[in-house]
Design a protein around this nucleic acid. Structure first.
Lengths: 300, 300
DNA sequence: TCAAAATGATGAGATATTTTCATCAATGAG
DNA sequence: CTCATTGATGAAAATATCTCATCATTTTGA
């Protein structure tokens, strides 16, 4: 099937963007290493192609029209995309770059403490990591891989199970010394429940598991990620639900305690995912194999 | 400050995209109305600029290399962006196009039924509407305006209050005739609670308001939007929480009933939003003024 | 089995596009 | 009042793109 893209002359689009961003043909010319006359011609060419004005000429200045402003948003975004993609391809070939989006809690508590081991093992692989609880559309993103928290039932991507998540209440030792004891689950009524927005059910389910009526609790504290919730618990702000193994270091160090060892199985786990049917770069392969190996080590 | 974009030759990028998408220089040539030789030259030019191979030549075929595949994702996206932006600017100037993202329930139950009135009033404005519960990044989107459901505490955008949301249980009349009565809130235990994912608290809060213990309910049904939840209630699948005024028509038509009139104030409302400090097009102005006017009419 | 067709590569030359140059108009700064 | 600055414009020069012709190799159909 014949697909026809109706694209404007791309060279003039590129010159338009520089002119629009600078709101000056002279500045754009300097940036692009051409003369201001070239910019003027190219803008005129584009305006003729589009059949409308992108700039309003105002004495010795140019100002974007509303249409020009609209167009600039998209064009700027598109050129950013091309620039970033080009940069990624032409980066130092001796350094393999892997872009990874990681669930925040996993990043902070499992990956970061082990990052040095990866870097020592693979000095020629550079990781570019972002924390995000959301899902990635690999068709529209430069992200190579992701570590998700969820049920694992995602489609059209390669999903590799890493680790199950079991939640247990944690709090600062100082929370108990403040006079309000935590001898039995019912005692949680006297404390602040630290909740994760979008995961409010976790406390609900835990309390149900512990045989505690959910109603009658005071206002809780709500944070946007499990990682922040656990940090708040460490600060003595209340009791959070945290993955037992991800917080094992803080528990061992005495920064957090587990007032109860009732563990909630959320039926969610961490998974390593990447685009299906895509050959892995060396760096992606290195990271994937390493994470799986480290996961085996830490679960023995 | 001098900003230098390092962009590849854009004409060759464009030709690369067609060749990559078709995995054929001949097909790309046909699409672009040039000769296959031109395509071959342009691809070679781009590969020389990047310093790597985008295609693996295999006898009479070309196949994308992994780098070529990666590049194609970004380039395709970028060109889509330019194409769409160009199309929007060059659409029939007698028709003003407004792109709007609308909260699903509001779209289905408030806007759609009134759309004809808008179109009759403004025949020269074309609305391109999508349903989404998410927020829009107006710096990275072609969306002109949005109707959000939330607290209204968004920054860097223009927010105009439309209507408060009050939730009340609704169900199909047939649900009661099935033998399980709904005389008092406690009777909800015998029914399926239809919940909206990400808004599970709504039922929780309503039950608390009604003085019903939340625990002890059987499995509910969970849907991704309030609009779908209300539709499921209409199908007799259980009891949903719905905005009282948005479902007034269904209630009047006898398709839904309100077993209880206890209304939950979620402290959330519908808002019309658009980018701050941006001059409104005629179409945007028309839509904004019309929605506000209709909202006043329907709340009197 | 063999000739024709098909695909991609390549260099030279033709064509189209882009850019510079020169000039102009209008405005702002000193 | 003069000079500098910005953008517009047309002609000419420079550059990029494309076609043409040819080649190599593989695939297809008679």
């Amino acid at each position: 099937m014949l697909v026809i893209r109706r694209l404007p002359p791309l060279n003039s689009v590129r010159i338009f963007e520089a002119a629009a961003r600078n709101e000056s043909f002279v500045a754009a010319a300097e940036e692009l290493s051409v003369t201001a006359s070239a910019v003027s011609h190219q803008v005129k060419t584009l305006e003729q192609f589009l059949g409308l004005e992108l700039f309003r000429r105002n004495k010795r200045k140019v100002e974007l029209t509303p249409m020009g402003e609209q167009y600039l948003v998209s064009i700027k975004y598109a050129l950013d995309e091309i620039e970033v993609a080009t940069k990624r391809l032409t980066a130092n070939p001796e350094t393999d770059i892997v872009t990874i989006s990681v669930a925040p809690n996993f990043l902070t508590r499992w990956l970061m403490p082990r990052m040095q081991r990866f870097q020592e093992r693979f000095p020629d692989v550079e990781l570019q990591i972002s924390a995000s609880a959301g899902l990635i559309d690999f068709n529209k993103s430069n992200t190579d891989m992701a570590i998700y928290f969820g049920h694992g039932d995602w489609h059209d991507i390669e999903v590799h199970f890493l680790r199950k998540v079991l939640l247990v209440p944690v709090c600062s030792p100082g929370l108990i010394k403040s006079g309000k004891q935590l001898a039995k689950p019912e005692d949680l009524r006297k404390h602040t429940l630290i909740q994760v927005s979008k995961r409010l059910y976790e406390w609900q389910e835990w309390l149900q598991l512990a045989g505690v009526e959910h109603s009658g609790f005071g206002r809780g504290l709500q944070l946007s990620s499990s990682q922040l919730a656990t940090a708040a618990a460490q600060e003595g702000l209340g009791v959070a639900l945290a993955d037992s193994t991800l917080t094992s270091r803080e528990i061992k160090d005495g920064k957090l305690i587990m007032p109860f060892d009732i563990m909630l199985n959320t039926h969610k786990s961490f998974y390593l995912v990447h685009k299906k049917n895509r050959s892995l770069t060396y760096g992606m392969r290195a990271f994937k194999d390493w994470v799986i190996e480290e996961m085996h080590k830490s679960s023995v």
